[in-house]
């Protein structure tokens, strides 16, 4: 277990150094994302200055939501950045070389890339949480737990979408679209969703479990809200592993479109 973690850490460090190899580009992407987020915050600031609240959500709740979303996307991109282009990796047949190695296929796939833009999120998210989300120090462990749960769900969803590449060659852009759609849901007040839209946000595009459930857990700490975050993380991680391995066995039978 410790050896596996160390191996994973080595890979993440390598991926980050690779992203840093072109410093100007890295600064541009990370800084660009930071400014991008800042603009969105100005827009939300204007919104809440004018309308005060939406569905019971106030500025502080929105800051909490955006802060968790940004941190989740940041952690995912820095430590599990391979999720973003995994479908393309599968379709290019790059699994072959990894399959001839003895260890941690999923780990190798997730850690093969670090997204420079994610650093912009990872710096902005905690700043936002600390400055505007109206949190007390006592809530910090809840926030960290919420971010951990959200990250697991977000990366797992990404792996599920990427696994479609084992079945359909068009999955490359589709998988990215689905990840982006999940993100769109994750950047609006959870209180606005009703009916079918809400059902989608808590299933196929699990924005509900990426941020809304963690936000609820922080604002209303209870066994149920905590169980919801933890349960979703376990469930989505299991689903992602199952789907990926189903696809992988198909790939190894030679029935897959990839390779």
């Amino acid at each position: 277990m410790i050896a596996a973690l160390r191996l994973y850490a080595t890979q993440v460090v390598l991926a980050n150094r690779m992203a840093l190899a072109d410093r100007a580009n890295f600064a541009l992407q990370a800084g660009g994302m930071f400014i991008n987020n800042a603009f969105m915050l100005v827009l939300w600031g204007l919104f809440f200055a004018g309308f005060k609240s939406v569905g019971g959500w106030r500025q502080g709740d929105m800051a909490l939501l955006m802060g968790i979303t940004m941190t989740v996307v940041g952690v995912s991109g820095v430590a599990f950045g391979g999720y973003r282009d995994m479908a393309a990796t599968i379709l290019r047949g790059e699994l072959d070389a990894l399959l001839t190695q003895p260890k941690g296929l999923m780990g190798r796939l997730l850690a093969r890339e670090c997204l420079a833009t994610a650093w912009g999120d990872l710096i902005g998210g905690p700043l936002l949480l600390a400055g505007f989300a109206r949190l007390s120090w006592g809530e910090a462990p809840l926030v960290v737990a919420g971010i951990a749960g959200g990250t697991v769900v977000y990366v797992s969803a990404g792996v599920c979408f990427a696994s479609l590449a084992f079945w359909a060659s068009g999955a490359r852009s589709f998988a990215r679209d689905l990840t982006d759609f999940t993100l769109v849901f994750s950047t609006y007040p959870g209180s606005i969703y009703r009916g079918a839209v809400k059902a989608i946000a808590f299933s196929i595009l699990p924005a509900g479990f990426v941020v809304m459930a963690p936000v609820r857990m922080v604002r209303d700490a209870s066994v149920e809200t905590a169980a919801m975050v933890a349960g979703a993380a376990v469930l989505y991680a299991a689903l992602a592993m199952a789907l990926f391995h189903l696809g992988l066995s198909r790939y190894r039978r030679g029935a897959s479109v990839a390779g």
Binding site: F51, K52, V54, G55, V184, F185, Y188, I192
Partner: peptide
């Protein structure tokens, strides 16, 4: 087009919610 549908679903949910409950002091 799919993205357009999605973003409109979200944004109309947002603005309908705002319209439905005019909070005191809001524009």
């Amino acid at each position: 087009c799919l993205f357009f549908g999605l973003i409109m679903t979200v944004l109309s949910a947002l603005w309908d919610k705002v319209a439905a409950e005019q909070v005191a002091g809001a524009i």
